[in-house]
Design a protein around this nucleic acid. Structure first.
Ligand code: SF4
Ligand code: SF4
Lengths: 141, 141
DNA sequence: TTTATTTAAGACAAATGAGTCTTTTAATAT
DNA sequence: ATATTAAAAGACTCATTTGTCTTAAATAAA
């Protein structure tokens, strides 16, 4: 479904949403260890998230990554779009050139409803809401 | 979601289900051209399908690939399993080591329904049924 | 101001996936 | 039997993704 980079990104953002704040920043190393993800690869991912303003960061001593308030209000969808693009939600599951209701592929009925459902959820759920659920239900990242 | 090999396989099998019979076999070339898929790559895919007895084939003049009656009764699921394995349905969407209800990942609610629903459909729909729909609704492959 | 610390950037390498090409094997029509 | 046809097999190349490493830039504490 999603690329590894995208999966790591989702986990990292939720991790930051749960474990960081503007007063309490977290470094790549800590995140990588906690999530059990390749450190340098994660670093690049965090950089991209930062460039896209999905997370915040400051350099230097006591620096690190964190979620600012405005970061928490964006929908989950944005993370995925940043890494895998809109295609994961729009491109045909069978790899046909175009996905349209007029020219549906054979898996249309099966696949369409589910993909749309997932997309809807990711569009309408903010990182904050999702992170709250993670905290409340003690979900593992 | 699925690998290209798997997507091509699904399309090729449905193509054969619609356009072939034991009396009317089809060669790689024709399939590749109709589906607009790399010929040699498709050849390998058809070979794998044949090895796994998901399609039938005979060599030599007037030979080619076709669907025997028993091939048509297997569920769509088998094609996917043959290429991408069960993992596409069982492995965590976020790439966590284990996917379980006790230790759910943050996307659990959103993603689980999607994947399970799709899997259920693919398990309970035979190639024949799917091909019939393709014919009836004139779906494009 | 210097030094330690941490992100930013980008080159590089390894692994996987996708696609191509050539040769071998089997079937069948003549 | 032989020639022809088409699948089977496997080596090979190319592209993309994933992962590593090194250096630069920024910030803050000493
Ligand atoms: S199954 Fe239908 S709706 Fe889904 S991607 Fe293919 S064409 Fe589009
Ligand atoms: S979201 Fe939950 S159910 Fe889906 S793969 Fe991850 S852990 Fe499993």
């Amino acid at each position: 479904m999603f690329s590894k980079a995208c999966k790591y990104a989702i986990r990292a953002v939720l991790y930051l949403a749960v474990h960081s704040s503007p007063e309490n920043k977290v470094g790549v190393k800590a995140i990588a260890e906690d999530l059990q993800v390749p450190k340098h690869f994660l670093a690049k991912i965090l950089q991209q998230l930062s460039r896209d303003q999905l997370i915040s960061s400051v350099k230097g001593p006591n620096g690190g990554f964190y979620m600012a308030d405005e970061n928490l209000n964006v929908p989950m969808e944005k993370i995925i779009k940043s890494f895998d693009g809109m295609e994961v939600f729009t491109s045909c599951i069978l790899g046909l050139p175009v996905c349209s209701a007029e020219n549906p592929c054979p898996l249309h009925v099966q696949a369409f409803a589910y993909r749309e459902g997932l997309y809807y959820q990711l569009q309408h759920q903010s990182i904050r809401e999702m992170a709250d659920r993670v905290k409340l239900q003690e979900l593992k990242l």
